[in-house]
Amino acid sequence: MTAPIPRDIPDLPALPRTSPHLLPSAVPARAVVPLARRPVAAAYRLVLALLAAGAVLIEILAGSPGRVLSYFAIQSAVLLAVVMLASARRAWLARHPVPGALTAATLLYVGMAALVHHLLLADATPRFSMTDGSAGPTWLEPLAAHTLYTVLPVATLLDLLLLSPPARTHLRQAATWLLYPLAYLAFSLARGELLPGSPARYLYPFLDVVRHGYRNVLANALLLGLAFYALAVLIVALDHVRPDPVRHRPKTGFRLQPPVG
C-alpha cells in the first residue's frame, strides 16, 4: 500500500540567498582546460636553444674554454639553451610549461648582458673580447657576438610576448632573480684575486679592481644591480599587462587562474 499523494503540496520556504550572483571558484586553469600540443612554440624554442648553444660553442672554440665560460653573457646563454630546450619538449608533449619565474629570470639575464654590452662594452677602448683570438674560427666570432647580444634577447622577449601565457610572475620574485648576479660578482672578484698574473684577471673592465679600486668597482656593481632590478620589475609588469596569446578562456562557472610558477 502506498500513501495517497496529497492534492495540495505546501509551499517550501525559499532558501536564503547571501549574494545575488554565484561566487566564482578559484580553480586553476589546468583543472578544467586540457593541455594541447603546441608544435609552433616547440619548434621556435628548439631553434632558440640551438642558436644559444651554437653561439657559446663558437666563442669556446675561438678562445680558452675556461675563460669564455666564466663570462656572464656565456653563462646566461647556456641557461637560456637549457630552459628553451626543456620548454620546447614540454610544448611538444603537451605538458605543463616550465615555471614562469625561470623563463623570466632567463630573459632578465640575457637582456641585461645585452644592455651592458651595447651601452658599456661595444665602443670600449681597447676593444672588448671574450676570446684571445689565438685559436679557433675567429671569423665567426662577430656572428656569435651578434647572436648573443642581439638575436637571443629579442627572440626570448618574443617568446614571452607571443608564445607564453601571461601573469605567471610576481613582483616578490624580482629580488630573488638578483641572487645569481650577486653570486657572479663575488665569483668575478674572487677570480681576480686568485689570478694576479693573468692578462684576463678581471673579466669586465668596469670590474677591474687594479684600474678602478674596490670603491669604484662596488659603486659600478651597485648601479648595475639597480638596473637589474628595474629591468626585472619591467618584465613582471609586462607579463601582467599583456594579453594572453596562447588561448582564449572559455566561459564556465569557474574563474580560471593561470598556473602559478
Rank of each mutant, 00 (worst) to 15 (best):
3 A>H: 07
5 I>E: 12
7 R>A: 11
8 D>T: 15
9 I>K: 03
10 P>Y: 11
12 L>D: 03
13 P>L: 15
13 P>E: 13
14 A>D: 14
15 L>V: 15
17 R>Q: 15
20 P>E: 03
23 L>N: 03
24 P>I: 02
26 A>M: 00
26 A>Q: 00
31 A>K: 01
31 A>C: 05
36 A>Q: 14
38 R>L: 03
38 R>K: 04
43 A>Q: 05
43 A>M: 02
46 L>V: 05
46 L>Y: 08
52 A>Q: 10
55 A>G: 09
56 V>K: 10
56 V>R: 09
58 I>Y: 02
60 I>L: 06
60 I>S: 06
61 L>W: 08
65 P>S: 09
66 G>K: 11
66 G>V: 14
70 S>C: 09
70 S>W: 04
73 A>I: 13
73 A>W: 09
74 I>V: 15
74 I>Q: 05
75 Q>I: 03
76 S>C: 12
77 A>M: 08
77 A>N: 02
79 L>E: 02
84 M>V: 09
89 R>P: 01
90 R>Y: 04
91 A>I: 07
93 L>R: 12
94 A>I: 09
94 A>G: 03
95 R>S: 07
96 H>R: 10
98 V>E: 11
99 P>G: 12
102 L>G: 11
104 A>L: 13
105 A>T: 15
114 A>E: 04
114 A>M: 00
115 L>C: 13
115 L>A: 15
117 H>I: 00
118 H>W: 14
121 L>C: 07
128 F>Y: 13
129 S>N: 00
130 M>S: 08
132 D>N: 11
132 D>S: 14
135 A>D: 13
135 A>R: 11
136 G>D: 08
139 W>K: 00
140 L>W: 11
140 L>V: 14
144 A>T: 05
147 T>W: 08
148 L>V: 03
151 V>E: 05
153 P>V: 09
153 P>R: 03
154 V>E: 00
154 V>T: 02
154 V>C: 01
155 A>S: 13
156 T>E: 04
157 L>C: 00
157 L>R: 06
159 D>C: 12
159 D>W: 06
166 P>I: 11
168 R>F: 01
169 T>E: 00
177 W>N: 08
178 L>P: 04
180 Y>T: 12
185 L>D: 07
187 F>S: 08
187 F>I: 05
191 R>F: 03
192 G>Q: 07
193 E>H: 12
199 P>R: 14
200 A>Y: 09
201 R>H: 01
204 Y>R: 02
205 P>I: 07
207 L>C: 01
208 D>C: 03
210 V>T: 15
217 V>K: 05
217 V>P: 01
217 V>F: 00
218 L>S: 03
218 L>I: 14
231 L>D: 05
232 A>P: 06
237 A>Q: 08
238 L>W: 07
239 D>K: 08
242 R>D: 08
242 R>L: 10
242 R>K: 11
244 D>Y: 02
245 P>L: 05
245 P>H: 10
248 H>P: 01
248 H>K: 07
248 H>V: 14
248 H>M: 11
252 T>E: 13
252 T>Y: 06
252 T>G: 08
252 T>L: 15
253 G>F: 08
254 F>S: 13
254 F>D: 10
256 L>V: 07
256 L>N: 10
